[in-house]
Simulated scan of single mutants.
Amino acid sequence: MTRSERLAEQLDWHWRENLRPRLDGLTDEEYFWEPVRDCWSIRPRGRSTAPGPRGSGEWTMDSAPPAPATAPTPAPAPAPVTTIAWRLAHIIVSCLGYRVAWYFGGQDVDSRTFAYAGTAGEALKQLDEMYERWNAGVRGLSDIDLDRPPAVGPERYPLENRVLHVNRELIHHGAEVSLLRDLYRRQDGAVPRRI
């Protein structure tokens, strides 16, 4: 097995055995479920109350505009809790989409112009498509490619480092989505016990 195949397989095993099966049957109600007040989500255009929503289509992603280095960030602190819809959009665009374009010459993806999904089914289709592009791109890398910094994008570390970072991000955010699904399914109004 080549280095690139090992890197791809690390994530692909998790994708096939853990994350993707956990997303089967995701409903629109779960996708948009807000477990607490003031969550960030994907919303119909014009309905966001976040300071800088992103997206070009009928749906936008709650967001805050990036702050200049010399100014305090306008993002809420602490960061808002996010819905499954927001988390999936983050995986599709920020974790995978940008990097597919930067590293493998795919179609440019930009959070300001991306057409975010207004249904769970549409989001899963976007996720599957972007994951397949990522996985194929990683599998096609040579050892020389992995040792060099990427030619495009802000990162200047070896590409192998960037691949490991994306793998970690997808596993991390996928676990968050899985936990939100567990919490959604277990809503029973029970009062937490004090120990």
Rank of each mutant, 00 (worst) to 15 (best):
M61H: 14
L11V: 03
T27K: 03
G55M: 13
W40C: 05
R47L: 14
R47Q: 14
R47V: 04
W15F: 10
R16V: 01
R54D: 09
S41F: 13
R43S: 03
C39P: 02
L11Y: 07
E29W: 03
C39Y: 12
W59H: 15
S48Q: 10
P51S: 08
A8P: 02
D24R: 10
P21V: 07
R22C: 12
I42N: 14
R22D: 09
L23S: 06
E29D: 13
S4V: 03
T27F: 02
E5A: 07
G46V: 11
E9V: 06
E34A: 14
S4E: 03
H14F: 11
M61Q: 15
R6Q: 14
T49F: 03
S56R: 09
R47Y: 02
D28L: 09
W13G: 04
P53F: 05
R6C: 08
F32T: 11
G55H: 12
R3H: 13
G52M: 09
S56W: 00
M61C: 15
S56K: 06
A50S: 15
R47C: 11
T60F: 13
I42D: 15
L26Y: 08
L26A: 09
L23E: 08
P21D: 02
E9L: 12
R6G: 06
E17K: 08
S4M: 03
L23G: 07
W15D: 01
D24E: 15
R20P: 03
E29S: 10
A50C: 06
A50P: 04
D12C: 02
V36G: 00
